[in-house]
Design a protein around this nucleic acid. Structure first.
Lengths: 207, 207
DNA sequence: ATGACCATGTGAAGAGTGTCACAAGCAGGG
DNA sequence: CCCTGCTTGTGACACTCTTCACATGGTCAT
């Protein structure tokens, strides 16, 4: 069963919203209430969920405690993913030390950098290694996901090295288009473009 | 003239690609070559550009040196945007000190944090101030864009304080849905969801 | 047990986006 | 001057995604 990208994105949001509700002690919720609470569309929620079967109860809504494991399973978040970070600058460190990324299914198990000043530093539970040993570090740590927080000119090479070392997917923060290798999906995240997009929607004034 | 979100995103990519070509000394380029070089769609490039007028020359292609200022103007990147960062953790520092964000149209002019250990630190060209003074800091620095790199529970409050202090748009990294105020557009960037989306597309194996 | 109520699940309509193929048009050489 | 070759700009098509409205089918009170 395949999920379209926009649906996938929303399912992640639903899961997070449901977890928030669970923390607040909410047992069951209707699509209407869920939509109001998190600024979503009620019909969309129902359609997205119904795509995988009937999880709700008519007249009542959805059981929070049942829906969370179901969504977690659908999104394949019911297992651990080991992550290796390439480039331990501020952004790389944000990934390695932010509790939001290191809690739950994703665990940053290793990090490398080419800057001698950073090599040897202890960041989270690991010591930063030399980029030169990226392949060994990746294999030893058993990382399945690579995060590229390196300058644009080094992104392609590091992607390929990660792929060869057995990584199954790469999240790229470098502002460049990477040629992908079949079997090693890539997701681009371009922080500068987000700023540029936001700038376009700023209320226009002639200052 | 309004631009749809996907088109806007691509225009930013085109602009970046063209700048790369300009650095390489390329004078003119066809949509075909541009598409090959940066893994885009030739027809899409032409359609996106033609939406704003005829910039190309039939039989030749597009003049790099002419197209760059045109795109820059369309995207409203021909001016400076002052940015204030709320939350000077690793992610906030990445924004403030990364040359990719501080070069070009975006300049981080101020940053605040609630952690006493961080207040007073010099990050880029500015000193981190107490979050308590967010409004004053924003007004004094004349910031037009706010970046939220705070925990989820503080995001809504800080968005509203930024809005009241005169910020014209907010880029939110907190994993929560913010209720927007008319006239102050918000763009959400959720790093955890990017990991989750990537995880879904990982080649499946039964390890 | 029965009826009123309520929320889901879903087919159909509508909007938006991407792809394709081709006519229009410019450059350069003969 | 004319013809060939190349690339743009564009209208039509196909596809995806979203929204809407309603029938289906449970729950709860009486």
């Amino acid at each position: 069963m395949s999920i379209s990208p926009p649906t996938l994105n929303r399912l992640c949001l639903y899961l997070r919203s449901l977890k928030r509700l669970q923390e607040d002690g909410v047992q069951q919720i209707s699509s209407q209430k869920l939509a109001e609470r998190f600024h979503l569309s009620a019909a969309q929620i129902r359609k997205d969920l119904a795509h995988f079967g009937a999880f709700g109860v008519r007249g009542v809504g959805y059981q929070v405690d049942e829906l969370i494991p179901t969504l977690t399973s659908i999104l394949r978040l019911d297992r651990r993913y080991r992550v290796v970070v390439v480039g331990m600058g501020n952004l790389g460190r944000a990934f390695a030390s932010h509790p939001g990324f290191n809690r739950g299914p994703f665990v940053v198990v290793a990090g490398v950098d080419s800057d001698p000043a950073k090599i040897g530093e202890t960041v989270n539970d690991f010591v930063v290694r030399d980029s030169q040993f990226l392949e060994e570090v990746t294999r030893e740590s058993g990382a399945e996901i690579g995060v590229l927080t390196v300058p644009a000119h080094g992104a392609q090479e590091n992607y390929e090295r990660l792929a060869k070392a057995g990584v199954k997917g790469v999240l790229n923060f470098a502002p460049t288009r990477i040629r992908t290798i079949p079997g090693v999906p890539l997701k681009d995240v371009d922080l500068r473009i987000y700023l540029e997009e936001l700038a376009y929607y700023l209320p226009f004034d002639d200052s």
